[in-house]
Write a protein that binds this DNA or RNA. Sequence first.
DNA 1: CCTACCGATCGGTAGG
DNA 2: CCTACCGATCGGTAGG
Lengths: 231, 231
Amino acid sequence: MNLDSPDTPRAIAAAETPRRARGRPRKTADERDDGNRRQELINGAARLFRQQGFAATSTRDIAAAVGMRSGSPFYHFESKEALLGAVMLEGMQGALLRQHAALALLPPDASARERLRVLVRNHFDALLGPDSDFIPVMLYEWRSLEATQRSEVNRLKDRYEADWVPVLAALHAQGQLGSDPVLARLMIFGALNWSAQWYAPPSGRSAKSRARASLDDLTTSALQLFLKEPA
Amino acid sequence: MNLDSPDTPRAIAAAETPRRARGRPRKTADERDDGNRRQELINGAARLFRQQGFAATSTRDIAAAVGMRSGSPFYHFESKEALLGAVMLEGMQGALLRQHAALALLPPDASARERLRVLVRNHFDALLGPDSDFIPVMLYEWRSLEATQRSEVNRLKDRYEADWVPVLAALHAQGQLGSDPVLARLMIFGALNWSAQWYAPPSGRSAKSRARASLDDLTTSALQLFLKEPA
DNA sequence: CCTACCGATCGGTAGG
DNA sequence: CCTACCGATCGGTAGG
């Protein structure tokens, strides 16, 4: 009943309490401390799933991307679908965490417009920023996820979207949002999510700061498009 | 040099002048008149590609969907990718035709707002209306298309989008569009295209008229969201 | 358009 | 985590 027994549904159990390899028994001193091989698989899978799609990516591709042999990913994950679920779960957990952190930095009296700006900016970062493969995979490979994992990811997605509802409702009440909040949320998410299909980060070396500036510009333009003039 | 020679690049040639099986020589009287078997393959492939994705759909699935044996689709198409290209080409040709027809019905002095309404309404129809598998396949399976076909479809896509540019520019000049026209077009297309992921047509029998009404409602809401109050 | 088939690749496993 | 392997499925073809 420990992490080394080979046939327990390790992937699912670990997915529920991820990241912390609590109490994992080291066998020998020269064994590499590789709770992070699992993480490497998730990262590599996210990148390949985004570039090629889930069905077009073989588990051999993923293994090769992290320097493993073809069968080894199945030591860490029950199935290819479980790996997809881990990618999406990790993406949503990170995005939700960053969204909460960004909202917490706002002054308590921040306007709805300012709150929406923070939400949109954070969402662009999840879609287009560094390490932004996870959320696009979640958005565009949803149908490949199995039903059991789907509901798990959906719980996080619901919490993520729940933060938007009062902001949009307030903007609608102020007359700054021209459509009912439910439909507005769907359309705004669509407009933002679509950027994953056309946005190319500014080229050139050390483009990090310029890319960030660009995401700020995108945020400004999006707000100008969606909101009426402030009162 | 006719349609029966087995190894000519028939799919590509036919894709450029499709639909009309001009001068196809009938062999015998009891041979079924099946220029439309090719069309059936395109329709079936569009439906399956949309539901399951291109990579997750086998050519055997498609053959079975139209009552063929596994090898027979390759009598009509060089490859699975060529079939995908035909789906996208057909989708764009139809959408472009309907867009031109809808614009032609407008009075010459129609406002930019009215023009945008027609464009958005037609686009919703391509995404969500009857026989609306082609455009979503084009939008969401773009990366699976081969480079040669990609440019062919792109030519149609460019013409489709070109109709939007002056309308959005006029709205921007009137102060009704809060963002520059280029970015506005990308965001608006995103908002509309995303509806393919969440829109479920009204249920119940003979829901046709209700579904159409719903697309009208969607159009109205979209315009309210994107445009400032009319002068 | 069908029959019959091929080589390649795939997800996954046993056993260490 | 590797070695060695399996059955299934895939896109595609020859020949009629």
